[in-house]
């Protein structure tokens, strides 16, 4: 990651998937702190909470209870530009065309499919890390 001082916000309802990300971060030696929100609503609460540190990247699941990823993106898009500047990478099971279209329409920075195989998943996370190490991002 280009910025290592800021946390990464993981919006994910599945505990095992969350564990997988944690495990992958550890395996890849990604030093950024990983904050987790169980759904879109909790993620928004985190982002609006001034006491919490502003994340440098959001990893977003699509299918979640209470508030899904697409709805979260809609709220963010309509919200203030501070929020809009945080890059969002969708990390989901869904390969539905509809989800991809809506996500990119709402300005996501990337769309990754969670592979079933954990080794492949590590590769996916590695790719994300490498990309955001090379890519510039707003402070």
């Amino acid at each position: 990651m280009k910025i290592t001082s800021r946390p990464i916000l993981l919006v994910e309802d599945d505990d095992v998937d969350s564990m997988a990300v944690h495990r992958a971060f550890k395996a890849l030696h990604i030093t950024n702190r990983l904050e987790r929100a169980e759904n879109g609503e909790k993620a928004l609460a985190y982002l609006h909470d001034d006491t919490k540190e502003r994340p440098c990247l959001v990893l977003l699941d699509i299918n979640m209870p209470v508030m899904g990823g697409i709805e979260f993106l809609r709220v963010v898009k309509d919200g203030n530009h501070n929020l809009r500047r945080i890059p969002v990478v969708v990390l989901t099971t869904s390969a539905e065309q509809q989800d991809k279209i809506e996500s990119f329409d709402l300005g996501v920075a990337g769309y990754m499919k969670k592979p079933v195989d954990y080794q492949q998943f590590i590769e996916t996370v590695r790719t994300i890390d490498r990309y955001w190490t090379v890519s510039e991002m707003p402070e």
């Binding site: 599945d14 998937d17 299918n63 099971t93 969670k114």
Partner: peptide, 18 residues
């Protein structure tokens, strides 16, 4: 099927791997 079935499947796969 795409979402709700795949998520636990992936969990099983991941856990087996771990």
């Amino acid at each position: 099927v795409s979402h709700d079935l795949k998520a636990p499947l992936r969990a099983i796969g991941s856990l087996a791997d771990w």
